[in-house]
Design a protein around this nucleic acid. Structure first.
Lengths: 190, 190
DNA sequence: ATATGTATATACTGCCCAGTATATAAACAT
DNA sequence: ATGTTTATATACTGGGCAGTATATACATAT
């Protein structure tokens, strides 16, 4: 019965990414999803609630996908950090890639008090923490610093890709990351 | 006579940055600017035209400020690349910093055909080219690659700062940039 | 067949939006 | 002082917006 709910979430996510959040009305969402506003408001209290859920789902899907790929294809902690950007590249170059949800959301809701902005900031923080654990496991000298630098590279590359598809930014971010990772591990060994 | 025009541009720029572009109506702009819609539409054909001019002015101001600071405080080409991030940090940590205009604009107008998005992409490209010339003058091995990497760092750090003020992202981006720059110059010397 | 509860469709409310037409005030010329 | 042009203020138009109230179809139960 909640198949409609899933459909609404999926359609909303797609429209938000391709047309922007504020530019997408609920009428458009229900029309594309093949349902009505009554149904939408049965499952979601407000448009803001829908936005928040779309963000939550998007972030969960992304982090699940990434961590599963990492644990499958890279058993050793040192490998994981090296392979991180391979999966990021795979994710970004996928044909259905439409950008990083929380980056766009924070741009559309710049006010730091806004719930959508707050969630975006929280997701960005969680992602950095995820990277920090990766860096720590790999034995980086200063895991938090490296994690912040890697997150800057990733978010920057994705931003570049959002502005212009096919910019190849991730490829160069990957090279930069390799240098930074080596640098962080070398210094630790010395 | 065009003092009102300047005022409108300034107010619009401020409101776009703090509240978002799509969330800012022309009524709000004219109210804050202390004028009327008739006057606004005398100077600007449409809201989209106003947005485009705000972006143009913002980008011109930024690049002028940056290149002037660079040529004043760093005469040698090699110094300029090193000092680049000092000025970026100064710009970002300024109290009236509200983000990089074309990053937000491209997020609010994701459609690549949209004029606002196109201008954002063009400005991003120009900025990369500016960095490439800096890198070439400094004698980088592969100026275009280094420029793209630096732009990713800068835009990523600014993005991080937009999501959470005072994140200190630029500080770490600066460290990363130093490593990348050294790496690019070392390899060239070898 | 009729009653009852549930999900969907239609229609509507009040509000904000971009953009414009009309009215009024100011500046200037004669 | 009167006519004429220019700038500003007020009022309006049509449309889209989020959200809701009412009506209708549908399923199930008796």
């Amino acid at each position: 019965m909640s198949v409609l709910r899933e459909k609404i979430l999926h359609v909303a996510s797609d429209l938000f990414q391709t047309r922007g959040i504020n530019s997408t009305g609920v009428d458009t969402i229900v029309a594309v999803a093949g349902t009505t506003k009554m149904t939408l408001y049965k499952y979601f209290r407000s448009k803001e609630d829908l936005i928040l859920e779309v963000l939550q789902k998007g972030h969960a899907d992304f982090t699940d996908w990434l961590s599963q790929n990492l644990s499958k294809n890279a058993r050793k902690p040192s490998e994981r950090l090296q392979k991180l950007f391979d999966f990021i590249e795979e994710w970004v170059t996928a044909p259905d890639f439409r950008g990083m949800a929380f980056l766009k959301a924070s741009a559309e809701f710049p006010n730091e008090e806004n719930p959508v902005h707050r969630l975006s900031a929280e997701q960005s923080r969680q992602f950095r923490q995820f990277l920090a654990e990766l860096a720590a496991d790999a034995g980086a000298r200063d895991p938090d610093s490296l994690a912040l630098q890697l997150s800057i590279l990733i978010e920057g590359a994705i931003q570049a890709e959002q502005i212009k598809r096919g910019s190849g930014a991730v490829k160069y971010a990957k090279k930069a990351a390799k240098i930074l990772i080596e640098n962080s591990l070398e210094k630790q060994a010395a």
